[in-house]
Computed example of a mutant assay.
Amino acid sequence: MSADVRSTVRKVKDIEYRLLPGTARQTTDIVIERDGCVTVRPPARMTPEQVDDTVLSRRRWIYRNLAEWRDLNSTRVVREWVNGESFLYLGGAYRLLLVGEQNEPVKLRDGRFCLLRSVVDQGGKAAAHEAFRDFYITRGRVRLKQRVEHFAPRVGVQPGPLQVKELGYRWASSLSGGGLHFHWKCLMAPPKIIDYIVVHELCHLHHRDHTELFWNEVDKVLPDYRERKEWLRARGAGMDL
């Protein structure tokens, strides 16, 4: 989940991929990102041409996983800003109720998401989306800070500042200086999946790439991480507005 802006786009035959900076590791890490982009992080000793050859050698795996990504994302939910529509929070689904008055644009009250009708009437879908995003960001700062503080000693790291923000197609990212960024959409996931995302990023403060050493660190804290990882892979597309 860690992001790196220092990348170049390459294409070998019909496979386009984003080449990330090399590392000291001995193997090449190939990942299908949430947006369907193929990212490749090779050992530092490899030339771009050697990376192309490696990508070609893994093309069947890439084709298969891209096809699976397309299947998963074909069920992406498009929500409407009308009474009765369902919205997610901490794994639960809550119906939307448009209200005439309240002291905040969005409130979770009496088992419903209450949204000021004036937000939709005056600003349309964009304003409603922004109001919900702000709700998730505000709640996320508190919950994610608590979970980071809970897990950091178990991982054995001292993380830097935490931000909840728009991260495009990444659930989270860890910075080289120890800072942690989380996508506001994480707040739609069940608590145990949020914990997986938190532990994942904390372990990246030990190991930047998805090596065996990295996953061993995750396993020490969350022995059932594979189940949580699979839940996020299979259902993440539905966590959207």
Rank of each mutant, 00 (worst) to 15 (best):
Y89R: 01
Y89H: 11
L90W: 04
L90G: 01
L90I: 01
G91T: 04
G91V: 05
G91M: 01
G92K: 14
A93T: 07
Y94Q: 02
Y94H: 12
R95Y: 02
R95K: 13
L96D: 00
L96R: 00
L96F: 04
L96E: 00
L96M: 07
L98F: 02
L98R: 08
L98W: 05
G100K: 07
G100N: 12
G100T: 09
E101T: 09
E101M: 08
E101C: 06
E101A: 05
Q102T: 01
Q102V: 05
V106C: 02
V106L: 01
K107L: 11
R109V: 14
R109I: 04
R109K: 13
D110F: 07
D110Y: 06
D110Q: 13
D110K: 08
G111E: 07
R112T: 08
C114E: 15
L115N: 05
L115D: 00
L116I: 06
L116W: 03
L116A: 09
L116F: 03
R117C: 03
R117N: 12
R117E: 15
R117L: 06
S118C: 06
V119M: 11
V119H: 07
V120L: 15
V120A: 11
V120Q: 09
D121Q: 15
D121E: 15
G123N: 11
G123A: 11
G124I: 01
G124A: 13
G124D: 14
K125A: 15
K125Q: 14
K125S: 11
A126Y: 10
A127K: 08
A128T: 05
A128I: 02
A128P: 07
A128G: 15
H129V: 11
A131L: 09
A131W: 05
F132T: 13
R133D: 13
D134T: 05
D134Y: 01
F135T: 10
F135G: 03
I137M: 11
T138A: 15
G140H: 03
R141H: 12
R143E: 12
R143N: 08
R143D: 10
L144M: 11
K145N: 12
K145Q: 14
K145L: 10
K145A: 13
K145V: 04
Q146W: 04
R147V: 12
R147W: 08
V148Q: 06
E149I: 01
E149Q: 14
A152T: 03
P153Q: 08
P153N: 07
R154I: 03
R154G: 09
R154V: 06
R154L: 14
G156E: 04
V157R: 09
V157W: 02
Q158K: 14
